[in-house]
Each structure stands twice: as C-alpha cells, then as structure tokens.
C-alpha cells in the first residue's frame, strides 16, 4: 500500500470529487470484497467492492443500489479498461462512490472524472494538488459524459451558440 498524506480535497460538481490522501476517509482495499468473490446474498454486509482490470462485474448490475463504494484498480496507467468499467457502472445507475486506485497518473484525472470516478487515491500531497487544479479547470469538451450527459452539439444548441 502506498504511503498517503492527510489531503482530502473536495471539488463541487455533479458528483463530489474527492482527492483522497491519508485520512479516515481512505477506502482501504482490505474493506472491499474482491468482485470475483462478491455474491448478491452478501447484500448489506459487503457494500464495498474492488474491481481489478479484466474482471467480470456483470453480477453487480442488479445490486448497484446496495453498494456504497466501488474501487477500480489500475494495474498500469496505460491499461484503459477501468475507464469503460466506470462509464458502464454510471450508465447502469450506480450512484455511490467510485474510486480510482492503483497506477493511474495525474494527467488522467480529468478523463477519469468524466468517466464517473469521484474519488482518487494519490501517493503524495503534491500529486493530489495537481489533480485538484486539473479537476477545477473546467475545460470545454465535445462528448457527453458522466458529469455532463449532453454532447457539445446539444449544449451548443441549448446555449444558442449556433
């Protein structure tokens, strides 16, 4: 486990975006049930699940409302499966905490947030600071996403830009 600092920064958005460092809010992986072992009859007791890239998580779909935390582990930052995992969970209505953990990099946080992650585990306060700045930067984007379901072409229209 990485050493973590006491950073816990919050950003206002459609979701609460937490950049989690070493704090009581930290979602320890030990509290999570690996998705491969998670069973629906364990509802209530196991509300936190860990998904590592490549693991099937379709058996969660009918029980998403009962889960409080889903941690998605990136084995290596170039493995982009976690982006689709997050997107699909949000599209299927999951509204609990979605935590990015493992080997993602700070330059990915805006895409991760747009895919539905609202919590990020960083190894240092300085990285968490950079992440916070990036998440606050309010960039223009073309696509609809987990933060903003309307693609630009629908927002352009709504804003009367065209």
């Amino acid at each position: 486990m990485q050493t973590l600092t006491d950073t816990n920064l919050q950003i206002q958005s459609r979701y609460q975006l937490n950049v989690v460092g070493e704090s009581e809010n930290l979602i320890l992986r030990e509290q999570c049930c690996p998705v491969t072992q998670w069973r629906s009859d364990s509802e209530g007791s196991l509300r936190k699940v860990l998904i590592t890239a490549g693991e099937d998580f379709s058996h969660l779909f009918d029980h998403l409302a009962s889960l409080s935390h889903i941690v998605v582990e990136f084995p290596v930052f170039t493995d982009g499966r976690g982006f689709s995992t997050a997107r699909e969970l949000r599209e299927r209505g999951y509204s609990g905490n979605l935590v990015a953990a493992g080997d993602f990099i700070v330059d990915q946080v805006d895409y991760l947030a747009r895919c539905g992650f609202d919590t990020f585990e960083f190894s240092s306060k300085s990285l968490a600071e950079i992440a916070r700045r990036k998440l606050n930067s309010n960039q223009e984007v073309y696509q609809g996403d987990a933060l903003q379901p309307l693609p630009l072409f629908r927002r352009r229209r709504a804003a009367g830009v065209i």
Binding site: G80, Y142, Q143
Partner: peptide, 15 residues
C-alpha cells in the same frame, strides 16, 4: 461529426 466525437474522448484514450 465523428472527428469532434473522437477528439479527446475520455473513455478511449488508453485502448
């Protein structure tokens, strides 16, 4: 239209 959709797509940057 597809250029705009694919530009900086958040889900598909690490295929």
């Amino acid at each position: 239209i597809l250029r705009q959709w694919s530009t900086l797509h958040p889900e598909f940057a690490f295929l």
